[in-house]
Nucleic acid binder design. Structure first.
Lengths: 402, 402
DNA sequence: ATGACTTAGTTCGAGCCGTGATTTAACCTG
DNA sequence: CAGGTTAAATCACGGCTCGAACTAAGTCAT
């Protein structure tokens, strides 16, 4: 426990280098003068550190700003082509790999369907390995690292081990197994966390530093960002929003408990609840295999008159209420600047349910924290998990400055 | 936004000095060799920095460890008598001031009853000011600062302003008003947070760095400690545990919403629920003005046979269930290393309810986070708020190293 | 065109800091 | 009391940031 921190003068340089690099990465082309103002370093130090960064090829000049009577400032920017990164979304139905430049612009994407459609550990590793080979072959710059977003709790001990209760992974030694197939640095994190990271860097969380991301898919998860960094519990399993209790002795959840939020607002649960409501109302419920299609069917049905529409509307109404209460709990307890709803089911539901959700939150949240938060939709599309995973190696670069 | 961090070599020294001081403060007398191992600094640097600390009088030698063949290591410890600190608990019924040495050993205490028994802003300021004068007069060492724990949300803009919804404080400029009466550094924070701080330093949280403290009194609050530091939301109002929703369309809460946890597990709510249950069972309910006494009465009644005992037991059973669910939510969502129950009502209830609470948590929490957490009672007594407030100036000293 | 002026960026010496090697200090054993 | 052992202080060195001096690169008035 030697308490890693800056200790000697070289660490100091590394930290300042990282500070400048980070500033340039997120705040676009900047002059040395801007950097002086932003970091509080002396002009001499900025000059020196920038020279280092230019030498290392991480930063390049990007034109000059027009002057009015003096030497013009020359702009600097991170050279986004000097490295590439790979982000992988290990989803419940398939694996998606994407290759980006350092600025997280997508260069190439690759979908790997899974044999048998299940996340069998035996199948996942070779699927990722071959995907990595294929993507790596196309790279035109050194690959900085590979970020992997997985469904489940990730523990670093020190190599990443994944506990994916819903996909049958029990202490799955993902990193160790992948190590046999690649020498690239690996970064494994929970998919909800990587998605949140992507939204914080490039999406709906760009302008705040404290937010909660809700991931509504088949189930319901969350990721908490505090002071710009993901909040992880003592064992990095924080954010299990779907399993907070919203109903005493309520519906049975797939986690085994009763009354979990997920048992009401996950897509799987919504579909099941509509099936029950339809049966009770004596309406035929077309069974659809694909969850996404089934959910859209329910949303469409709700626009119709008659008993089926009635049933769908009542199911969706309760969904809005439960989501709203779940959000109110988060607002009261964590007081985030923003709550962002994402995930395929969240994005599908929100357009019609958001006003009602906001109203429920207003009723159940305390005045002050409610007034200071906003509830919005995620701004990124379906590749947010992979993109967020790709931020992990970039984040390491920005922290280390090299 | 010049992003305060260590920048130059002097900041580096300050940081290392703080690192050593912190280590000495929390881990008792240590030799220079211990410090080398603990901090990773070179022996030369440790020697230099320790010499500084000795010169400054912050640290003194404390004997030597017996040697077996070499020069004996001499032990160092923080000189707890070189400074004193004052902690103030601004409670709903009165103000308590305590004077401590730097090691937070109590030297003197002072209770100031409030005129009219209310927290009238007009009365609070002079009460604190005169109390400070009296306590300061007895000090035998320079007073490092004054910590104040208040009931309500504290915002620093930049001087501390308190929003105490329950005591009628609306943007009360406490720090600005106190500034007119003292030149001592002031540190204002929420009382639940200061209490948690005291437990983290000297109580039930001493050996962990991530914990959630539940404060059960008349109402129910919480304080979240993550990585050793209090988690504050975007506006430092995080931790409103009492107002997470545990029952859809449930009991009306004093915050205006329905189904808040506080409407079931706060002492006020327990007493009200017992009154209802007693009335329904046709049992006489002695109305007692003092909440603490009333709660003890219910606990005693529960040990009796008959209808009254039955009613009390059912109320307490539900209380345990609700508390358990509230804790399970915290465990799932924040994954703390430890959950600590405090507050006068919590300490009163826990002895009889804790086994049942633990069982409810086990049923409602996810396996992994539940297995890695423990649920315990607070270890400090009634002065934890004042003591925790007094940690604030000490924390600043330990961070700055001077 | 040219010289005065203005601003950007670099260079240089000074002052600190941490480190490894070396020296001094303090104690034990026989 | 000498030899061995470990702790602590000292020293020389290289690295860092900083302020000041200096050079570079423009604009503007004449």
């Amino acid at each position: 426990m030697t308490d890693e921190g800056r200790r000697n003068v070289r660490d100091l340089r590394r930290a300042n280098r990282a500070r400048l690099l980070r500033r340039l990465y997120f705040h676009g082309p900047l002059s040395r003068q801007d950097l002086i103002a932003a970091t509080g370093l002396s002009s001499a130090s900025v000059s020196n550190v920038v020279a280092d960064l230019l030498d290392a090829g991480l930063v390049v000049e990007a034109g000059a700003v027009e002057s009015d009577g003096g030497r013009p400032r020359i702009l600097l920017r991170v050279d986004t082509s000097c490295f590439e990164v790979i982000g992988i979304d290990v989803g419940e139905t398939g694996i998606r790999l994407e290759r980006f430049d350092l600025g997280l612009n997508e260069l190439e994407a690759l979908d790997v369907p899974l044999r048998g459609g299940s996340l069998d550990p035996e199948a996942v590793i070779p699927a990722i390995a071959t995907g990595l080979d294929e993507l790596g072959a196309g790279a035109e710059a050194p690959v900085l690292g590979v970020g992997i977003g997985v469904p489940g709790i990730v523990q670093h001990q020190p190599l990443a081990v994944v506990h994916g209760q819903t996909v049958g992974w029990d202490a799955f030694p993902l990193e160790e197994l992948l190590r046999e197939h690649t020498t690239l640095p690996l970064f494994v994190d929970n998919g909800a966390t990587t998605m949140a990271q992507a939204e914080m860097w490039f999406g709906a969380g760009r302008d705040v530093d404290s937010a909660v991301f809700l991931l509504l898919g088949s189930g319901a998860g969350a990721s908490v960002i505090a002071d710009g960094a993901p909040f992880r519990g003592s064992t990095t399993s924080a954010g299990e929003w779907g399993h907070i209790n919203v109903q005493y002795q309520g519906r049975r959840c797939r986690c085994g408990a009763r009354g979990c939020l997920e048992a009401y607002v996950g897509a799987e649960a919504i579909i099941a609840r509509y099936a029950e409501a339809a049966a009770a109302a004596g309406v035929a419920d077309d069974v659809v295999a694909d969850e996404e299609e089934a959910l859209r069917g329910i949303l469409a049905t709700a626009d119709q008159a008659g008993a089926a529409g009635e049933a769908a509307r009542s199911v969706l109404d309760e969904t809005a209420v439960r989501i709203g209460i779940g959000i109110a709990n988060v607002v009261n307890f964590l007081n985030p600047q923003r709550v962002i709803i994402g995930g395929w089911a969240g994005l599908a539901l929100a357009p019609s349910l958001l006003p009602q959700i906001r109203e429920v939150v207003r009723e159940h949240a305390l005045r002050l924290p409610y007034a200071l938060t906003s509830i919005d939709l995620g701004a990124l599309g379906a590749d947010a998990v992979a993109r967020g995973a790709a931020t992990l190696p970039v984040a390491r670069l920005l922290e280390a400055g090299s």
